[in-house]
Computed example of a mutant assay.
Amino acid sequence: MEPTIFDLILQKEIPADIVYEDAHVLGFKDVNPQAPIHVLFIPKVRIATHNDLDADNIDYLSRMHLAAKEYAAEVGVADEGYRVVMNCNGHGGQTVYHIHLHFLAGRQMLWPPG
């Protein structure tokens, strides 16, 4: 499998502005932010899309959400609110085929998102 940009970030071959890391999840600032705070949380194993989640890897999804919750508290936006989003495949807006959780905060989010 060809490495994605996220694989290269995990391997420290491409620099990233890392804001969170534990044994299972890495969080780094999005290079094209859509909000004042825009962080991507990724599992440290490649799971290509949301459709590839299964009983063997579902724990990574939970860990990504817990990481986002902890980060929200750390940067002081937990009480005012934030958005977490995952895209799946082309029509869902996914461009990197390594699941990632978008964490957006620092402004009022609108609905529908588009």
Rank of each mutant, 00 (worst) to 15 (best):
Y97E: 14
P36M: 00
R83K: 15
D30P: 05
R46K: 15
V75L: 09
N51F: 02
H100Q: 03
I99K: 03
Y97L: 14
A23W: 03
H100P: 12
R83A: 14
N32Q: 12
R63A: 15
R107L: 10
D22A: 02
E70N: 14
R46N: 11
V85G: 01
H91D: 14
N57M: 04
K44H: 04
M64A: 08
P33N: 14
K69A: 11
A55C: 01
H98L: 14
A105L: 08
F103A: 14
R107E: 14
D79W: 10
A35F: 04
I47N: 02
D56V: 10
D79Y: 08
L26V: 11
A78R: 11
Q34Y: 02
E74D: 13
A73S: 12
H50R: 01
L61A: 10
L40F: 09
H100N: 05
I37S: 02
E80Q: 13
L53I: 13
D59I: 03
E74M: 13
H65G: 04
E80D: 13
R107C: 12
T49V: 09
A48T: 11
R107Q: 14
N87S: 13
Q34K: 15
D79F: 07
N89P: 06
I42H: 00
I99N: 05
M64H: 09
G90N: 15
V45G: 05
H102R: 12
N89Q: 13
G27L: 01
N89T: 11
H24T: 06
V96P: 10
H50I: 12
Q34V: 07
H91K: 15
T49C: 07
G76V: 08
V31C: 00
D79T: 14
V75C: 14
A55P: 04
D79V: 13
D54A: 03
E80N: 13
D59F: 05
R46C: 12
D52Y: 03
H24I: 05
N32G: 07
E74Q: 14
A72Q: 03
V39A: 06
C88D: 15
R63Q: 15
L101N: 08
